[in-house]
Amino acid sequence: MTPVLQARDVSMVFGGLAALKNVSLDLDEGKIVGLIGPNGAGKTTFFNCLTGLYTPTTGQVLLKGDPLPGDPAAVTDAGVARTFQNIRLFPSMTVLENVLLGRHVRMKQGPLSSLFHGPAFRRGEAAARDRARELLAFVGLGKVEDELSRNLPYGDQRRLEIARALATDPAVLLLDEPTAGMNPQETEAARQLIFRIRDTGVSVVVIEHDTKFIFTLCDRVSVLVQGELLVEGTPDEVRGDPRVVEAYLGKPPEEVEAELQAVQEGEQS
């Protein structure tokens, strides 16, 4: 079975800086893949390559076997939706309008139909509203659809962003740090939500700092360090890998001490 989303040897160079070096990733249908790594490892850059915001310098991204179009709007149309690390809702649109905007790409009314508001327009609009309300209920925001999105509490804004992304009927959902700033209860709710999204047949890629969250959520985990793929495997494989421990926690204390000693000896001699 071909993976839904496949990155093949993706490299990204900004000027002289290589942000990504030959990163590959396979996302199978109905799976959750986690992407972890320290700050500056290139996780978000990689995400931007997957959503068409950046075109990889070399390598390619395939969606259901076809190369990804070069334009973010077209990528969304093709079935990849995302959320943002720093929540980016349309702050002064209502909750419902935010989700309706996500529905934009699946609605077909052109300028003339929008101008005259004919029967077909009304049907399409009503259908979009129904779907949007359904999604709001799905993420647990059914009661606040007329609230302005900027007035929602933080956790609800995160969920609204997910609802907006789901409104584009994606095959793949990319979540950029969905639990950043959340307390344990909210994090648990987010985990359950992601499972439920997976159960509807959407494949998910999650970037997260919280390794515990990733290891209990994902089917497979990739670790990026300094633009390179360090390890890829099941959560158990990755958790036990000494290179991951080193990348995340630094070297074990005894090794650091040994190195320090070596340096001091070097200075003395």
């Binding site: 973010p72 709007a73 969304t76 939706a81 980016r88 349309f90 002064s92 934009h104």
Partner: peptide, 10 residues
Amino acid sequence: EDEDVARAMG
């Protein structure tokens, strides 16, 4: 409100 996000939403 946010042109980049609008584009990312299709």
